[in-house]
């Protein structure tokens, strides 16, 4: 495996970890978008669409698990799934109007390839970064560390496994020309159970929610 100097920083809106991969013109969420991050958005947005009825509609299809009771069997419920394309874009733009983007299939796969080729980072949330993350962000990050380290021997574990870019969710991406969106990735078995025909593009905001598809922050540098 190729080892690069990977940095972890805190995103400035919710203080969840972002990964800085040398050579890439964007930072990538360490994990898929969590309920906690979405809830920061909901508490600050003035967009009336995202009210309690909307939240109930999304959460009722996938469930939200508290970080105080999560384990290896239900950890995908830490993450938001089932957002429609337009909603995902609006939520992402709350982080940054100019910097947020939904990755294309190619960009997502490139990131996956990079991080699966990189050995797992030892104790990624020790030191300064632990001070910079919000307590719940740190807790969630550490839980996922435990879950992924239990699932694989340390020698085989990669940065991609730590970031749940394998055995995580399907994630929202766009086609290369940006004309439609779809889910990509090899999900955890719990998410797999939801999987339907992925050839159906998620091409507008009106289609049904897809409870197997989550999203991840991609922020231009």
């Amino acid at each position: 495996m190729i080892e690069k100097t990977i940095n972890i920083i805190a995103d400035d809106r919710t203080c969840f970890p972002l990964v800085v991969i040398p050579g890439l013109p964007f930072h990538v969420g360490w994990l898929p978008l969590t309920w906690i991050q979405l809830e920061y958005f909901l508490s600050e947005t003035s967009d009336r669409r995202f009210d309690s009825a909307w939240y109930q509609d999304v959460v009722s299809r996938t469930n939200r698990v508290s970080s105080s009771v999560v384990g290896s069997s239900n950890f995908p419920n830490l993450f938001v799934r089932g957002l429609k394309l337009q909603e995902a874009q609006l939520i992402g733009r709350w982080w940054s109007e100019d910097r947020f983007f939904l990755p294309t299939v190619g960009q997502w796969m490139h990131v996956q390839q990079e991080v699966l080729a990189h050995p797992a980072i030892f104790n990624p949330f020790e030191g300064q970064i632990a001070q910079e993350l919000h307590p719940r962000a740190l807790r969630v990050a550490k839980i996922i560390e435990e879950v992924t380290s239990e699932a694989q021997p340390e020698s085989a574990r990669t940065l991609g496994d730590q970031m749940l870019l394998r055995n995580g969710l399907r994630e929202l991406v766009t086609s290369e020309e940006g004309s439609f969106a779809m889910g990509i990735g090899t999900p955890h078995r719990m998410v797999e159970a939801f999987t339907r025909d992925l050839t159906i593009p998620l091409d507008d905001g009106n289609r049904a929610r897809r409870p197997e598809v989550g999203m991840r922050l991609f922020l231009k540098v």
Binding site: I36, E39, Y40, L42, S43, E44, R48, D51, S52, A53, Y55, H134, P135, R136
Partner: peptide, 13 residues
């Protein structure tokens, strides 16, 4: 207010 999601985390943190 109406429509708000009942959350406390963003306040406490």
């Amino acid at each position: 207010p109406s429509g708000r999601v009942p959350l406390i985390g963003t306040i406490l943190e």
